[in-house]
Design a protein around this nucleic acid. Structure first.
Length: 571
RNA sequence: AGCGGUGUAGCUCAGUUGGUUAGAGCAACGGCUUCAUAAGCCGUGUGUCGUCGGUUCGAGUCCGACCACCGCUACCA
């Protein structure tokens, strides 16, 4: 049986996440997995923080806290934001705490070596004697040897644009402490990507149908791929296996090497927690698994080239990605999100004041699926007010309040003689309705959110055609039949809403007087005329109230003003 | 500089493998309606599909050049 193993890019435990991350890699995966579960598919959704790497050590040292404590704080903070958004993972962990992670990463390294996919090379690198660490390109500044511009970055000169090797910088200095670094020899291990490409990965990639952005990106890289160093001189990370280190000490696996293995480790951690420690292999080493990586476009090379190469190279029959729905970037009102420049929205503050589920819907409806897109406060207001509050929320209140006033708050009866005619009207004359799950499974979340609204709109057209407020006086029996039909449709809207807005779906479901969980009913698909009516006539309605709060202009203006006031563009 | 992306109605965007009069939502305007969070329904768009050229019976949709904006460029994770 097909299984869906779904991952979202592991967020780096070095700062808060923003809406770009949310709609890029997490929310679509949440909607996707919810939909699959509703359809009865076997699904595992895996995530957690990526906690190694030099940026984290620098961040922690700046604050003077131990690395483990620093990443634990961000792990919790990011999870709490995810909770506020309503993201549901089967396992949430972190690469520095997941019990199987270090050993599994080392095992990957060892097996890649055994397969002949690693190369050892000795190189010279800049070393800061004061910080006692090798310096990454970005942590060295100096004078550009080509145009004498200073300060030039270690990787590129901002003035002449030439690529630089930090070893060639004139008067290099350590960006952390200002000390002049010295050259030291060091030995590193490289992943032989050209060999992996030639053996298998090149063909595998070309035989697969990818999103255009993935295709374009990797198509080129495949031709020019070079061996990639996968070890680093530092202390924070998964240590190099001792038996392979030839006495080299102070080396760890490169964060980009161990991070994607986190997907596997976390799955193993989940399996152990289920009391079936070997069960992770059913997911990772079964040909029935569909592995889906939700990522932003910046992650494409690693998920479509490097990690698949690793999975293949250990020769343990790991599955390779089945789909990589990589999103483009999400901006904020025309500019890139930038926490340091103050161009951002604090999500803890945001979710304390705004409806998380309405926000989920807006994010999905503006997702950067085919091109960069953006969070726009005015659009957010319009979507919440016109699509959610007016079209869906008001549909419920207009029908249910009418029933409260005129039918004693109980779902009115359907006169059997009306059934065929009303069904025909609703299904044929009130506009098209479609199954949003088809778009969701095709990773088209913008379209799916439109479909949900279109489906709700059908009932609004139906009500206008049948005008129950007139029938109430002229033909109360028919009026009851019409309202009964409306309630049924609202029930369907609730069920269609479930993956997008699980809480609202439940609330709407309960408003109809239903007990039980709407998401326990499975995916409803499209209604069929003979079987679509499900409600109990005479059932007492629940509490009827507005589903969505509207945003007013002043509020939106304030948000935009606050954003602009906080913005401090770098000098 | 290289690579990638984008450029379609006022705004945000869809436009599958090239094919009848280029679409949606929002906004705007007109009409209908009053059950509802002044909500709902119906109707209304003469858009150089960035520019120029090419392929084709036929191109927004393929090819080339150019222009504009954006992003990335690998030990930044």
């Amino acid at each position: 049986m097909t299984r869906y193993l779904v991952t979202s890019a592991l967020p780096y435990a070095n700062g808060p996440i923003h809406f770009g991350h949310v709609i890029g890699a997490y929310l679509p995966a949440d909607v996707y997995t919810r939909t699959l579960r509703l359809m009865g598919e076997e699904v595992l959704y895996v995530c957690g923080t990526d906690e190694h790497g030099v940026a984290i050590t620098i961040g922690a040292e700046k604050e003077g806290v131990p690395y483990a404590e620093y990443v634990a704080r961000w792990r919790a903070s990011i999870k709490s934001t995810f909770d506020a958004i309503g993201l549901h993972f089967d396992i949430w962990s972190g690469t520095s705490i997941s019990p199987p992670h270090a050993e599994l990463s080392q095992d990957f390294f060892r097996r890649l070596g055994q397969g002949g996919y690693l190369q050892e090379r000795e190189t010279e690198q800049l070393f800061c004697p004061k910080d006692t660490k090798f310096l990454a390109d970005r942590y060295v500044t100096g004078t550009c040897p080509f145009c004498t511009f200073s300060p030039a970055r270690g990787d590129e000169c901002p003035r002449c644009g030439k690529w630089l090797d930090p070893l060639n910088l004139i008067d290099p200095s350590c960006k952390i402490c200002g000390t002049r670094p010295e050259r030291r020899r060091t030995r590193h291990w490289y992943l032989d990507l050209p060999k992996l490409r030639n053996e298998y990965i090149g063909k595998w990639f070309e035989g697969h149908d990818w999103k255009p952005n993935v295709q374009a990106f990797i198509g080129n890289q495949l031709k020019e791929v070079e061996p990639r160093p996968i070890t680093r001189d530092m202390s924070w990370g998964v240590p190099l296996p001792e038996d392979l280190a030839h006495g080299e000490v102070g080396k760890v696996l490169y964060v980009w090497f161990d991070a994607p293995i986190g997907y596997v480790s976390f799955t193993a951690e989940w399996a152990a927690a289920q009391g079936r420690p070997e069960a992770w292999k059913d997911w990772w080493r079964s040909p029935d698994t569909r592995l889906v990586h939700f990522i932003g476009k910046d992650n494409i090379p690693f998920h479509c080239l490097v990690f698949p190469s690793m999975l293949y190279g250990v020769r343990q029959e790991y599955v390779l990605p089945w789909a990589v729905p990589a999103n483009e970037f999400y901006n904020l009102q025309g500019r890139k999100f930038s926490t340091s420049a103050g161009w951002s929205i604090d999500l803890d503050d945001f979710f304390a004041r705004y409806d998380a589920e309405a926000t989920r819907f807006y994010l999905l409806s503006s997702a950067p699926e085919t091109a960069d897109s953006e969070w726009n406060w005015g659009d957010y207001q319009r979507v919440v007010n016109t699509q959610l509050a007016d079209t869906i929320g008001n549909l419920a209140t207009r029908v249910l309040k009418f029933i409260e006033k005129n039918f004693d708050g109980k779902i009115p009866a359907l006169e059997p003689g009306h059934r065929e005619e009303l069904d025909r009207l609703l299904f044929e004359d009130c506009g098209a309705f479609t199954d949003p799950s088809e778009s969701i499974l095709a990773f088209r979340f913008r379209r799916a959110s439109e479909q949900l609204i279109e489906n709700a709109r059908v009932a609004n057209v139906f009500i206008d055609r049948l005008a129950p407020w007139s029938l109430r006086k002229t033909d109360p029996v028919r009026c009851a039949s019409v309202l009964n039909t409306c309630c049924e449709w609202i029930g369907w809207v609730a069920r269609w809403s479930t993956p997008f807005m699980p809480g609202k779906a439940q609330k709407l479901w309960a408003m109809l007087g239903n007990s039980g969980k709407v998401d326990s009913l499975g995916w409803c698909g499209l209604p069929e005329r003979s079987t679509w009516r499900r409600l109990e006539t005479g059932q007492e309605l629940g509490t009827v109230e507005g589903l969505f709060a509207k945003l007013d202009d002043a509020q939106v203006q304030t948000e935009i003003a606050t954003l602009n006031a906080r913005h401090t563009p770098p000098a």
